[in-house]
Simulated assay, not measured.
Amino acid sequence: MGYNTTVVVMNDALDVIEADPQFGARLAAAIRYAGAFPQLEHVNVEAHSSNCLHSNAAIVVETHHSSITVTVEVGQNYGKVVARDRVPAR
C-alpha cells in the first residue's frame, strides 16, 4: 500500500546534502512533482550549502504504486526505468 520512489543520490554531494537544512523539503517536492508528471525521465534535486551548490545532488527517477514492481538501471548519474510489471487484479 502506498507509493515507492527510486532516487539516485550523488555520493560526491553528501557533504553538501548533509549541510543543507532544506534538502529534505526539496526532495519531497521533487518526488511529488515526479508523481504528478510520470512522463518525465527524471527530476533533479539541488542541495545548497554556504559555499557550494550541487545542481544535481540527487535525481528522482520514478514513482510507482507499491503493488507494481519496477526495474531500474542506474549509471552515469541517472536512472532509467527498464520494466514496469503490473500485479494482476485480484
Rank of each mutant, 00 (worst) to 15 (best):
V45Q: 00
L40S: 11
A47F: 06
A47E: 00
T69A: 13
A36Q: 12
A34K: 14
Y33P: 05
C52I: 12
A19F: 06
A83C: 07
G2D: 09
I17P: 08
Q39K: 14
H65N: 11
M1Q: 14
I17D: 08
H42E: 05
G35P: 01
P88D: 03
P21W: 06
E41G: 12
A36K: 08
L27M: 07
G35D: 05
N77M: 11
L27S: 02
V8E: 01
A29T: 08
A30N: 09
I68K: 03
E73S: 15
E46Q: 12
E18R: 08
E46R: 15
R32W: 00
V45S: 04
E62D: 14
N56E: 14
H48S: 01
S55T: 12
I31Q: 10
G79A: 09
M10R: 15
A36W: 01
I17V: 15
E18T: 04
V82M: 12
L53S: 14
Q39W: 01
A58E: 05
H65F: 06
M1C: 11
S55W: 10
H42Y: 10
T63R: 15
V72I: 13
V45H: 01
T63D: 01
T63N: 09
A57G: 07
A58L: 04
T71M: 05
P21G: 02
H54L: 00
S49K: 08
D15C: 02
G75L: 04
V74Y: 05
S49V: 06
A34R: 14
N4L: 11
Q39Y: 03
Q39M: 07
V81N: 03
Y33R: 15
P38W: 00
V74G: 04
N51Y: 03
S55P: 14
N44H: 15
N44F: 01
R26V: 13
G35M: 00
D85S: 13
G79D: 01
D15A: 09
K80H: 06
A89L: 14
M10K: 14
F37N: 02
E62M: 11
V60S: 02
D12L: 05
F23R: 10
A25R: 12
Y3I: 15
R26E: 04
H54F: 12
V61H: 00
A29L: 02
N44S: 08
G2A: 13
V61D: 04
H64C: 00
N4H: 11
V87Q: 15
T71F: 03
T6Q: 06
I68V: 10
A28D: 07
L27P: 00
G24I: 00
V81L: 10
E62L: 07
V8T: 10
A34S: 11
R84D: 07
F23K: 03
I59H: 04
Q76N: 14
